[in-house]
Write a protein that binds this DNA or RNA. Structure first.
Length: 290
DNA sequence: ACATGTTGTCGGGTTACTTCA
DNA sequence: CCTGAAGTAACCCGACAACAT
């Protein structure tokens, strides 16, 4: 071990005053209490070294720091030969050079962590912005699907009564090309899902049976006017109880009502929640969105 | 060949001191 | 003048590797 230090101070103190054994070049500081950032001119002044106070921490001169920094840029690890060479050139103890490199690596690592943090935070902020933008798109598209679905149903009901005394088909505005494309998607994805659910329900026989939709939501028909829906992706495992009388409740597994349910914040869900339950002569139908 | 001791270095944490606002 | 924050030289400790015995 490189040691070379003398301790004096009160016994038992963890950090006694320390006096360093100095090499030839630094011997001019022996016994002085050199302040930080001492200029070269000041160092040459005789009275500077008159005091015989114990050696304490001394700042390295700017020239010493510059040379150490340059050496650190080349290689941040210090092999024994380079350490001795640097110590000789700078007029420092090899131990001082080693300590400087250790501290310099620690400072570099701290800065590196700060840079990494900034980079990750920037990346996170960007992703968050993208996520929020996608949520807005999702919301908008859901609304569009709803509107188009309603439009399609209105059109289909108009064609059923065509030729009868019902409203004329001309009362329904024709779908645009884009709307027709969306409707086609609804036909191929949503309607079969509804059919599957209807088959599940019908095959189960009783009104108290349960079905699971494409979202994994578990729907239980309680009676002719009430259905309970459990959403497995909801970390709170809320139970949404929809009714046909215009209201709904949200409960947690333990039965306590929860006004903070995240679904309240979803305008699409809130607006169309009761659409999930359509009771018509005991027949249960579902709105489904993907 | 293996065990043990010595020496030096490293990273992480801490202390003591200086500088500055 | 006092004070707290920041920067930094130096230290302590445990882990590890290289080398000698």
């Amino acid at each position: 071990m490189e040691s070379g230090r003398l301790l004096f101070g009160s016994p038992g103190s963890h950090h006694g005053h320390q006096l360093f054994l100095l090499n030839d070049a630094s011997a001019i500081f022996r016994g002085s209490k050199r302040p930080f950032f001492t200029s070269a001119e000041e160092l040459l002044e005789e009275e500077y070294y008159d005091e015989q106070l114990p050696e304490k921490k001394r700042r390295l001169t700017p020239e010493q720091v510059l040379m150490l920094e340059r050496s650190f840029e080349e290689e941040n690890k210090l092999e024994p030969e380079r350490k001795s060479e640097l110590a000789r050139k700078l007029g420092l103890q090899p131990r001082q050079v080693a300590v400087w490199f250790q501290n310099r690596r620690a400072r570099w690592k701290t800065k590196q962590l700060e840079r990494d943090f900034d980079r990750l935070k920037s990346s996170y902020d960007s992703l968050l912005s993208d996520h929020e933008s996608l949520l807005q798109d999702n919301l908008r598209l859901r609304s569009q699907v709803m509107a188009l679905t309603e439009k399609l149903q209105t059109k289909e009901s108009g064609s059923v009564v065509e030729g009868s005394t019902g409203p004329k088909q001309d009362d329904v505005a024709p779908l645009s090309e884009a709307e027709q494309t969306t409707v086609a998607k609804i036909d191929t994805t949503l309607i079969p899902a509804v059919q599957i659910k209807a088959e599940d329900r019908l095959s189960s026989g009783s009104g108290g049976s349960a079905v699971v939709d494409t979202d994994g939501a578990h729907h239980q028909l309680v009676d002719s006017s009430v259905v309970e829906s459990y959403f497995p992706d909801d970390e709170y495992h809320h139970c949404i109880v929809g009714t046909t009388n215009g209201g709904f409740q949200s409960e947690e597994d333990d039965g306590h009502s929860d006004e903070g349910c995240s679904y309240y914040a979803d305008p699409i869900f809130t607006e169309h929640l009761n659409d999930r339950v359509e009771v018509d002569d005991g027949q249960l139908g579902w709105w489904v969105w993907s």
